[in-house]
Computed example of a mutant assay.
Amino acid sequence: MAGQACKYAQQCFEQGFIGGDWGIEGDLTHDLGDNWRDFNSQYIPVFLAANPDKTKVGAGLACGMLHTICKGMAMGDLIFCPNGSGIYYVGEVTSDYYYAAGEILPHRRKVKWLAQGTSREEMSQPLKNSAGSIGTVCNITKYAQELEALLEGKKPPALTHSDESVEDPSVFALEKHLEDFLVANWQYTELGQDYDIYTEDGEIVGQQYPSDTGPIDILAISKNKQTLLVVELKRGRASDNVVGQIQRYMGYVKHELCEPNQDVKGVIIALEDDVRLQRALSVTQGIEFYKYQVSFKLIK
């Protein structure tokens, strides 16, 4: 996303670049190692100094996205940039990082844009959710097949059903798209009574939040701002291995994101558990287990 509310998208398209800002000044060329964690360690304090009203959560996300723009994207990668009117400009990254001092979005990559973009209305609902779910930069590589079909002028395959009474067959894909469904319906869940998915400047940033041991499915914060909640989703049965996984995420949150007056808790959500998971959780503090149920009804 080129600036808040896509305000720089047209300029990026016309001038052939994409970039970021976040109040971090100066050429980053010599600080762009392959490891984004090292970059974050160096620039989170810089970001917080330039944005004193932001949190450590926002700082970590901003620096991670800046590193993605400057280093994580490779030459030849395709990017999709919304213009704010339902169209995504599509372009190929054609240069390494460069710094445009005094310009908007000064941390830049050159882009060769295609003459014609693609419409958001042609995207499947899961792709719409992913493409618009997380601030400035998100990785939509898992939708590559659908995106390639869109660029060839083909619409993505639709879910089919044999019952004409079903108005929205997409609910049958709930288990496959559990994360997007949970985020969209968070306020109606038991967790939504006490926690909000983490947002910055009105945008959800707590979905697939990056950590040094992998992305956190959902990062939420209690309504009193005292507790950060790590949510790990498992599509199907959860084994005891997930306990160690969520503990690693919680450790990252505790040491890297929590403010001095905050603590961290965890929630595992799966279709079902087993005795090994129950045993592991019985001697583990701060982690709860929830089962999800898929329900579908036809009412005449």
Results as ranks from 00 to 15, higher is better:
Gly23Thr: 06
Ser165Val: 09
Tyr143Phe: 15
Val205Cys: 11
Leu174His: 10
Thr189Ala: 04
Ile69Glu: 11
Lys112Asp: 04
Tyr249His: 15
Gln226Asp: 14
Thr284Ser: 08
Ser170His: 11
Leu32Val: 02
Arg235Glu: 04
Gly33Gln: 03
Lys155Glu: 09
Glu288Ser: 13
Ile104Tyr: 09
Tyr98Ala: 00
Phe39Gly: 06
Gly102Arg: 03
Asp27Gln: 09
Phe80Trp: 04
Gly236Thr: 11
Ile299Phe: 07
Gly117Ala: 02
Glu25Leu: 13
Tyr188Trp: 06
Pro169Asn: 01
Lys254Asp: 00
Gly84Met: 04
Gln116Lys: 10
Leu48Ala: 10
Trp22Asp: 15
Tyr209Thr: 08
Gln245Val: 04
Trp186Gln: 05
Gln4Phe: 14
Lys234Ser: 04
Cys258Gln: 04
Ala184Ile: 00
Ala158Asp: 11
Gln187Ile: 01
Thr284Trp: 04
His177Gly: 08
Glu232Arg: 12
Asn139Trp: 02
Arg235Trp: 02
Ile204His: 06
Gly84Lys: 04
Tyr8Lys: 08
Leu277Pro: 07
Ser119Ile: 00
Gly132Ser: 08
Glu164Cys: 13
Glu288Leu: 11
Ala5Cys: 14
Gly266Phe: 02
Leu151Phe: 01
Ile269Ser: 04
Ser239Asn: 13
Asn185Ser: 12
Tyr8Pro: 13
Met65Asn: 14
Leu151Ile: 08
Leu229His: 07
Tyr97Val: 00
Lys7Glu: 13
Phe17Asn: 06
Lys56Ile: 00
Gln285Asp: 15
Leu271Arg: 14
Asn185Val: 01
Leu298Gly: 05
Gly19Gln: 05
Met65Phe: 02
Phe47Gly: 11
Phe47Cys: 10
Met65Glu: 15
Asp27Ala: 07
Thr55Phe: 02
Ala131Trp: 06
Leu151His: 03
Gln145Met: 08
Asn261Phe: 12
Ser119Leu: 09
Val111Gly: 04
Tyr188Ser: 15
Thr118Ile: 13
Ser41Pro: 07
Lys154Pro: 01
Gly192Arg: 03
Gln245Asn: 10
Lys254Ile: 00
Pro210Ile: 03
Gly72Ala: 08
Ala144Asn: 15
Leu48Asn: 08
Gly132Met: 01
Thr68Glu: 11
Gln226Lys: 15
Glu256Leu: 05
His107Asn: 11
Gly84Tyr: 07
Gln125Glu: 13
Arg109Gln: 06
Ala59Leu: 04
Gly236Glu: 07
Tyr290Ala: 05
Gly84Asn: 07
Asp263Asn: 14
Glu122Cys: 12
Gly91Ile: 01
Val205Trp: 06
Gln125Ser: 12
Ala173Lys: 12
